[in-house]
Design a binder for these strands. Structure first.
Lengths: 113, 113
DNA sequence: GCTATAGTTAGCATCATGGCTAAGCATGAT
DNA sequence: ATCATGCTTAGCCATGATGCTAACTATAGC
């Protein structure tokens, strides 16, 4: 039960913050420099920088520095582990629900005898 | 850019922990009492209890107390907001990639003239 | 070279999180 | 009535997350 998916923890943690999600939404419209991202948040630059670090550490964004401007861009495939995990869980949960449903149906029939 | 989806933050935060995800996986096989959940984690009961509280606050599990045993069960539909958000993001990101692709293609053709 | 701009780094305050132990309470078994 | 079981509460400690200010670096423009 130790450390199975450090990735997933990083990803979920990065997504667990409204500010970071809003930054992602903003970036969905296209790459942007740090200050443009900071603007709408109402937060100070260093604070936004740290949010960006978290996003980058999770692999959700990539940044490149050109002159004195750092441009941030989304990494679209970064969400796939999350999606995969979600799909797995849904599969298992629904399979169980089916079994439970079957069981209940059978039990009900039994009782009806 | 204020508080849009407190739910999403709760959900993502609940999922951002390996222990909690493993508890969910365990619960996917069927409802279980608190002690049965605590066992595999190697953590103490109070600690597990708090993980369960987090999961319950996020709506991911539901618990009922029968006698002195509290039974925990998964809430299958709880993941749908996450799924929805993910789908939205993918849609936007991919749309943008398509536009970018179109642009690049066009630009390349232009250059080829 | 000087100045404004864009990030960056360092350091601090505060609160949340994740773990623990110890003690308490309610219920089931004897 | 007593005791074991299963959970719960209270409280502590260490660490990490989130915000800030202030000071620093590095580039662009003049």
């Amino acid at each position: 039960m130790a450390k199975h998916d450090p990735d997933l923890s990083l990803l979920f943690h990065a997504l667990a913050d409204e500010t970071r999600r809003s930054i992602l939404s903003r970036l969905a419209e296209g790459p942007a420099p740090v200050s443009k991202l900071a603007g709408p948040t109402g937060l100070r630059l260093p604070t936004v920088m740290r949010h960006l670090s978290v996003l980058e550490a999770a692999g959700l964004i990539a940044t490149t520095k050109d002159g004195r401007i750092r441009t941030c861009a989304i990494v679209p495939e970064a969400l796939s582990p999350v999606r995969t995990w979600l799909d797995e869980q849904r599969a298992i949960w629904e399979a169980r629900l089916d079994r439970l449903d079957t069981y209940v149906t059978k039990a009900t029939k039994e009782r009806a005898k």
